[in-house]
Amino acid sequence: MTKPLIGTEVAEKIEEHLPGAVVEAGENSILLNSESVLDICRFLNQTAGLDFDYLTNLTAVDYLDYFEVVYHLVSMKHNHSLVLKARCFNRENPTIPSVTSIWGGADFQEREVYDLLGIRFDGHYNMKRIFLWEGFQGHPLRRDFL
């Protein structure tokens, strides 16, 4: 059985390493400062005892006030999981650091989020639309898109 890690406990570890990176830690998930996503992910990936080597799911939700990017991480070594969240408040040009340099699996999922929700991932090598054609107006999964 995959054990979901308690958000607050992991958040303490992150705080020790990167002060100010965690905005809010809940039971199930950790809300991160969107600038430090890449550093935290690298920390989670490389720290012994955490070893989050598998990015299961990367997606984003449009809450109208802000976008929330959600990362579902799993460690195959220890069989535990963690949910990370980061918020983008800029509606016109939301950006967040890309995690493709840590998990190759983020490649298509980040492109998908960009395509459908319009969140740019800084540092992605090929930030193009994935499903819709180049030149499509708007991002369909936003709640204000028709």
């Binding site: 493709t100 340099s101 190759g104 490649d107 090598y125 090929n126």
Partner: peptide, 9 residues
């Protein structure tokens, strides 16, 4: 390695 693979096509 896998990092080297992620480069622009």
């Amino acid at each position: 390695g896998y990092g080297a693979d992620l480069q622009a096509p």
